[in-house]
Design a protein around this nucleic acid. Structure first.
Lengths: 152, 152
DNA sequence: TGTAATTCCGACAGAAACGGTCGTATACTG
DNA sequence: CAGTATACGACCGTTTCTGTCGGAATTACA
C-alpha cells in the first residue's frame, strides 16, 4: 500500500536522534528507544542492521552504543529504507530475477518503473540532517532540476 | 515496503486493457482475467471496487461487462490505487485520526509528508492512457514544473 | 418464459509479511 | 570478575494480502 514499515520509520527516527546528539560519542539502543517509546529490542535489531549496512558504527561494552558512520548530511533516507526494508519496487511483479511471471509482457511495468525511480530520487534527496533540522531547506532547490530529469 | 499490492497492479492492468479496446462496448471480468492470467474472481472484485469508485461503468447480463467511465486520459493511476488500496501515507504512524501515537512529536513525519505528496503527484500525472501507449510522452513535459512545485 | 452470461456481495481460508519478544552468546569497560 | 552493551537466531501472535467459494440479482436473447 505504498507505506514505509514501522521498522523503517524507527530507523529514520533513530538516525535523526543520533544526528541531533553529536556531543555524545555513542548512544545505546535503549537510549534511543526510551526517547521515542520504541520497543528496545526491536530497535536494537534495526540498529544492528543499519550497522551491517555501514550506516552506523557500533561499539559494545560500557558507554558503548551506536553512532553515525558518516556525516548526517551524506546519509540519505533512501539508504536507510533500503537497508531495513530491502530493495523496493513499486510494481509487485518485479520480484528478483524472474521478472514478471504473468502474461507475455505486462507493459504496465515500464511506466511504473519510472515512477519507482522518481520516488527513489526523492528519498535520495533527503538526508538524515534534513530530518534533524526541522526545516529542510537544503534539499529543496538542490534537487529540483534533478527531479525533473528523473521523472521525465 | 513501498510497493503496490497485486490488486492495484491488476486494476491498473485491467484499465489499461480496457483503454486498449475501445471498440468493444464492454469487456467482462473474465475477458480481462484471461488476457493476463489473473484469477478471474479476484479481478471481478477489483473491477467492482473500481466501479463503486466511479472509474468504471458496469453492465450485468449477457454481453455485459465493464467499460471506462471516463476518457482514459482523464483517469490517473493515483485514482486507481486510491480506490483499491485506500489512502496511502508513506509514514506508518499517520493512522487515521489519532495521528502519531508515539512520542511527543516524531518530527520525522513532517519531511516525509512532503515525500508522500510528491509520490501522489507523480501518480496523478500518469493516466491510464499513458499506460496504454507504450511510451507516455504526454505525461512528461506536462507536469514537469508542477512536480517541482510539489516537492519543494 | 426460461436459460445462460454476467455483475454483485459477503464470508472465509491459506499464505505471507510485520511487529515484537526471548534466550543466549559475544565483546568491551573498569 | 561484574556489569553494560551489541550480535544473532528462533519463535510467535497479529495483521494484511491473495485467492476461493457460494449464492443472489440483473440482463440479453431465444
Amino acid at each position: 500500500m505504498l507505506k514505509l514499515t514501522k521498522k523503517a520509520d524507527y530507523g529514520l527516527m533513530a538516525l535523526k536522534f543520533l544526528a541531533e546528539h553529536p556531543e555524545r560519542s555513542a548512544l545505546s539502543a535503549k537510549d534511543v528507544a526510551d526517547a521515542y517509546g520504541i520497543p528496545a529490542q526491536l530497535l536494537a535489531k534495526i540498529l544492528q542492521q543499519l550497522t551491517r549496512s555501514g550506516l552506523l558504527r557500533s561499539h559494545a561494552g560500557m558507554n558503548g552504543g551506536y553512532a553515525l558512520a558518516r556525516e548526517a548530511r551524506s546519509i540519505s533516507a533512501y539508504e536507510v529504507i533500503l537497508s531495513i526494508d530491502g530493495p523496493f519496487f513499486i510494481t509487485s511483479c518485479t520480484k528478483g530475477k524472474t521478472g514478471c511471471e504473468l502474461t507475455t509482457n505486462c507493459t504496465i511495468k515500464e511506466p511504473l518503473a519510472r515512477v519507482n525511480e522518481t520516488i527513489a530520487g526523492v528519498l535520495k534527496s533527503i538526508s538524515i540532517q534534513d530530518l534533524a533540522e526541522h526545516e529542510q531547506p537544503a534539499a529543496r532547490e538542490r534537487n529540483a532540476r534533478e527531479l525533473v530529469a528523473l521523472t521525465l
